[in-house]
Design a protein around this nucleic acid. Structure first.
Lengths: 228, 228
DNA sequence: TATCCGTCAATTGGATACAATTTGCTTGAT
DNA sequence: ATCAAGCAAATTGTATCCAATTGACGGATA
């Protein structure tokens, strides 16, 4: 009585993880046939999964060209961070008001797992850092809010993967603990400040480094000038 | 050089409009071949459109049962309104800081079109009231924010269609003008208060009336108890 | 008569086949 | 040598086909 998940869901989840963990890098093509063969499913399934991923902003599709892993511009990145800050402020407001019983236990357990990979700046670190925020949002009990937070967190992970060289999650884990404490104290303002600083630091760090790689993006700019 | 839109997009847009305007009522079944025959396209197209609509929260699909127009519960409705309030507060904050030049003209033009249908509590009224908020969000220049606002506004329209008997958009139009003025004055607090009152009133009105119709929903609850 | 079980129609889940469109390359002319 | 036109390959867009699952109807049984 397991197997209640559809194939589309499975492919969707796998592709999402692959993108977040940088196995599939931004700008990389995602031909339906190739992905389908790889997973042993038909194009139909892959297509459905790609439609979902497009809605989540993780891939972009060009007409008759196919799907690509999204390459968020700095402008998009700013917009996403702006929305994320607003959404997470709401999360904090709600949690300070009503936190479920096992909430703190779950949060601390997650932080522990984050600490267990401290030092390793791999994709797992990025994923765990993001999942902390997702967990926070889920604890509000507001599924809609949790869904949106999850989406922006995932897109932020993609942005970090593109722009940031080292994620250096050391301070992040520490700030996660501070946020938990502030919420427990009912100090909304402080929790929000820490969260703003947390996100702001991440955004600033990303902004400083621009993108050294991603040849296609760089060339597309020069190509734009040639077109005129 | 027209026809740049795919069939899936067309069906998706049409279905969405039909749902928002209550041509397709909540709980109504959406068999793929029926819809396909109706529009003269294949099931594949309808299927893709339904996947998108599901992602937007306007339809729900049950495994091997098919797609239905979503019937948001009161709990879901509260969650959506909660998120909407947070998102629109951010919209106001941004607009008070930086409003594009033609912004006020566009807003006033829209309000005029809202006034032109004053008195008629039809689906057009609901749609226009929603589009005001969407326009507001688009003026921020933040595409991500605009997208999320658009989604929650659409879902709110569906909620209103379910729970509210008369939309009575008279006061709404007036409050729209007040919001514009408050933003122009740079009075974020006032604009936010009006917006909160605006949304709160809508939510409260919906909450009072419960739902008298929708037999299937009522019976499904009793059915749930039988299942245990 | 109410409950249980088996068969069947209806509908979706998924795969394959065909058509349309784009891209890149080859070929030829200037 | 460069550019344009056209052809071929690849990929997506769409339709059709088979299989699996679900819900309903009806008969059998206690």
């Amino acid at each position: 009585m397991s197997e209640k998940t559809t194939l589309t869901d499975a492919v969707h989840t796998l592709l999402r993880r692959a993108i977040i963990e940088q196995a599939l890098k931004p700008g990389m093509r995602l031909p339906e046939d190739t992905v389908g063969d790889q997973f042993g499913v038909s194009r139909t399934i892959v297509r459905h999964a790609l439609v979902r991923l497009e809605n989540e902003g993780l891939v972009v599709t060009r007409r008759n060209r196919g799907a690509f892993v999204a390459e968020p511009t700095l402008e998009e990145a700013k917009q996403i961070f702006e929305v994320r800050r607003a959404l997470e402020a709401e999360v904090i407001r709600i949690l300070a008001e009503r936190m479920p019983e096992s909430g703190y236990d779950q949060l601390r357990a997650h932080v522990r797992s984050e600490e267990s990979v401290r030092g390793k700046d791999g994709p797992v670190s990025i994923r765990l850092a993001g999942e902390f925020h997702t967990l926070l949002a889920e604890l509000t009990g507001n599924a809609v809010l949790a869904r949106y937070v999850s989406e922006v967190v995932l897109r932020c992970s993609l942005i970090m993967a593109m722009y940031a060289k080292s994620h250096s999650s050391d301070c992040a884990v520490d700030e996660h603990l501070q946020i938990i404490d502030a919420i427990r104290d009912g100090d909304v303002a402080r929790a929000r400040d820490i969260m703003d600083h947390h996100l702001g630091a991440v955004a600033d760090r990303a902004e400083l480094e621009e993108k050294p790689d991603s040849v296609s993006t760089i060339l597309s700019r020069y190509g734009k000038e040639l077109a005129s």
